[in-house]
Simulated scan of single mutants.
Amino acid sequence: MDIGRLRALRELSIRKTMAAVAEALHVSPSAVSQQISLLEQEVGIDLVERRGRGVNLTIAGRMLVERANRIFTELESARADMAELKEVVAGELRVAAFPSVAAAFIPKTIRALSATHPQLLVQFDEMEPEEGLNALRSWQTDVALIDDLNIPPGLLDPGIETIPLIEDVFNVMMSPNHRLAHMEEVTLGDLSGELWVIDTASSTYTRVLTDACQNAGFTPNIVARCKGFEVTLSLIREGCAIAIFPELRASFDLQDARVCRLVPEIRRRIFVAFRKGEKKSPALQAFIQSICAHTTDFADPPAA
Rank of each mutant, 00 (worst) to 15 (best):
S33Q: 11
T200W: 13
R111F: 05
R15Q: 00
L64Y: 02
A68K: 06
I160G: 01
G44I: 09
V88I: 14
V27A: 12
R261N: 00
I288K: 10
L155M: 12
I36V: 11
Q255R: 15
M173N: 01
D46Q: 08
T210S: 14
P264F: 15
G217W: 00
D297T: 08
A135K: 05
S251D: 08
G154N: 13
G91W: 06
S28G: 12
L64W: 01
F252R: 09
R237M: 02
N150D: 08
N221W: 00
D81K: 07
N56D: 09
T109K: 15
L136Y: 08
S234D: 07
V272C: 15
G189F: 08
R137C: 01
S33G: 14
G44R: 12
T232F: 02
L57A: 10
L64R: 07
V223P: 10
P153Q: 14
P246L: 14
A304L: 03
A102M: 02
A22G: 09
M127H: 12
I36E: 03
L57G: 03
P302F: 02
I266L: 15
T219I: 07
I160S: 01
K86F: 08
Q35Y: 13
L180P: 01
R79S: 07
D256S: 10
P302Y: 03
R207P: 03
A80I: 01
A80Q: 11
L145R: 04
F124P: 08
P176Y: 15
A115K: 09
V27G: 02
S203T: 15
D81Q: 10
F229Q: 01
L38C: 03
C260F: 00
L12M: 02
S13P: 00
A250Q: 15
N150R: 07
A22T: 04
N177C: 05
V197M: 09
R7T: 06
E49N: 12
E194H: 07
F229L: 13
N221F: 04
L235I: 02
E194T: 08
T73L: 10
I266Y: 13
I45L: 10
T295R: 09
T58E: 06
M183N: 09
R111S: 04
M18T: 12
R225K: 09
V169T: 15
R225A: 03
A90S: 11
G91L: 05
A78N: 02
F229C: 03
P176N: 13
H178W: 09
F245V: 14
E126F: 06
G217H: 00
V197Q: 11
L75D: 12
A273D: 05
I222S: 01
P99C: 02
V27D: 02
E185N: 11
A273R: 09
F72N: 09
V143F: 09
P153H: 10
M1Y: 08
G228F: 11
R51V: 08
E84G: 05
L85M: 12
E66P: 06
